[in-house]
Nucleic acid binder design. Structure first.
Length: 490
RNA sequence: GCCCCCAUCGUCUAGCGGCCUAGGACAUCGCCCUCUCACGGCGAAGACACCGGUUCAAAUCCGGUUGGGGGUGCCA
């Protein structure tokens, strides 16, 4: 029984995109389920666009998602190195082998000229193919080109007949006509770096990858890669092309659709559990009933057979809902750990938290827990618990504090708050109720003004809980302050 | 242009010839709970793209059309 070996091979040209994260997740789940190996390989052959920062960002994002790799950067295995830029000798060696076999040749055609020929082919309704003008160069011609300072690329000599079949685990058999679909593509660039289609084959073969799970955008290039596998005598891995992720406009998901970087989702306060659960459901499903899956459950239940074939629109609303679900599942201690960085950044709490302060935070979180979907929201929701320095919400003031008798009502409420032995529902509610008849209002008519006075807004946890947390002194001060503000307004 | 993939509620999907008057989840809209907002509960609305076949029977199989996506790069 061969062990399953899969890989995620991002190119470090930017942050980890949710599409890439989903691909990484599917590979990881497949590896873990089969007790296989998950390899991380950095495809940094694009010298112009690859950066060290991007590599780090991708590593961090994977760590946040909990997708640990068995071989890769900082985790050397038997098939390294795991950066393509450190594997150049390998590509040159195999390229040379192809040249010797007559399956690769140098091409000196200038890019502009190639572009022109391509346009002409389109005009004539033909597929766009390299015309092989450098296939049979004489030694004299080569010498002349080199004297001109032209630097060649290496092209793969593709098959002249037949069909290349991709046996895809998700899509079944997909057939490509060799002549019409696979032209003599470049395998080594003039800067000496391999192209994607070549490097990916050499690496996947040498790293003994058994299953290539990747985005559907790679399906059309697969016959090219298979021809290389075969030319080099490598065994061809199994392929599984997973559907693309689209934006709401059904175009490929990209930055212009908003946040697509995993790092950004983390900053906004998405829990990795929610992120992973949601991503797993983009293109995969288990049955007609279950939508919530823990990571161990995903490892157990995931299967390529149940990956869908059609592209999926990224639905941020569903992700948000799911994040709310996971926030509510957290214990208060866990929620505290998640929210703490946000509160610290907002200056609500210091770096060092006393036990008393932590207890206060936990009590706040108990009230807030069912009320937010993103961790970042915990800042605005909790502001009035930590500081008196907040603005009154204008709509709240307009809606609630302009009603007749508000000042009297607030004064009444203040007396109640001041007189009660304990700031809780048991003691306050009877007093509040007594006042209702006097002012001819219902409970909301008293509580809403009080809420705005004490929190600055008309949306908060239950008033008794808020009062208990804010405390008698602060509550009375704030009512005083509100009364003063109202007098100044009129 | 050429080639490949795909097609069930707005979205993610279940469905692999009869169990479907098509199920679930998000979103939407009602109602309940209620001091506001959430949470929670109940309910409603909402889809098999179209046209031909095959079959006793099709969302499910086949072909076409249309639509969407991808590839076609010295990007990956």
């Amino acid at each position: 029984m061969n062990t399953v070996r899969v890989r995620f091979a991002p190119s470090p040209t930017g942050y980890l995109h949710v599409g890439g994260a989903r691909t990484a997740l599917f590979n990881w789940l497949f590896a873990r389920q089969h007790k296989g190996v998950f390899v991380l390989r950095i495809e940094d052959t694009d010298l112009a666009r690859s950066t060290q920062e991007a590599t780090q960002a991708i590593l961090d994002a994977l760590e946040y998602l909990g997708l640990d790799w068995d071989e890769g950067p900082k985790k050397e295995g038997d098939y390294g190195p795991y950066y393509q830029s450190k594997r150049l000798e390998l590509y040159r060696e195999y390229a040379q082998r192809l040249v010797e076999q007559g399956r690769a040749y140098r091409c000196y055609c200038p890019p502009e000229e190639l572009e022109q020929r391509r346009e002409e082919q389109i005009k004539r309704g033909e597929p766009t193919h390299y015309d092989r003008s450098c296939l049979h160069l004489s030694a004299e011609e080569e010498a002349r080109y080199q004297a001109e300072g032209r630097i060649p690329v290496l092209r793969f000599r593709s098959l002249d007949e037949g069909v290349t079949e991709v046996d895809d685990l998700i899509r079944g058999s997909v057939r490509f006509d060799n002549v019409a679909q696979v032209d003599d593509f470049v395998i080594m660039k003039s800067d000496g770096m391999p192209t994607y289609n070549f490097a990916v084959v050499v690496d996947d073969a040498l790293m003994r990858i058994t299953h290539v799970i990747r985005g559907e955008d790679h399906l059309s290039n697969t016959p090219k890669q298979i021809q290389i596998y075969e030319a080099l005598g490598f065994s061809v891995p199994k392929f599984a092309h997973i559907p693309m992720i689209l934006g709401p406009d059904r175009a490929l998901l990209s930055k212009r659709h908003g946040a697509t970087s995993v790092t950004q989702f983390k900053k906004d306060g998405y829990l990795s559990t929610a992120m992973v659960n949601y991503l797993a459901l983009l293109g995969w499903s288990y049955d007609d009933a279950q939508t919530l899956f823990s990571v161990p459950e995903l490892v157990e239940k995931f299967s390529l057979e149940k990956v869908s074939k059609n592209p999926a629109v990224f639905d941020i609303q569903k992700l948000e809902w799911m994040n709310g679900v996971y926030i509510r599942e957290l214990s208060l201690e866990e929620l505290f750990d998640e929210v703490l960085p946000y509160w610290q950044e907002a200056g609500f709490v210091p770096a060092e938290i006393s036990p008393e302060l932590k207890d206060y935070c936990l009590r706040i979180l108990q009230e807030l827990q069912p009320r937010f979907k993103l961790l970042a929201e915990a800042v605005d929701l909790a502001r009035y618990f930590f500081t008196d320095d907040y603005q009154y919400n204008p709509e709240a003031v307009e809606q609630v504090l302009t009603k007749p008798q508000v000042e009297e009502i607030l004064e009444y409420a203040a007396e109640a708050v001041a007189s009660v032995p304990e700031l809780d529902e048991k003691h306050l509610k009877p007093l509040f109720k007594e006042g209702l008849a006097k002012f001819g209002v219902k409970m909301g008519g008293l509580i809403q003004p009080l809420r705005v006075a004490v929190t600055g807004t008309n949306v908060s946890p239950g008033i008794y809980e808020v009062l208990a947390l804010v405390g008698r002194d602060r509550a009375l001060q704030r009512i005083e302050r509100t009364l003063k503000m109202l007098k100044e307004r009129s």
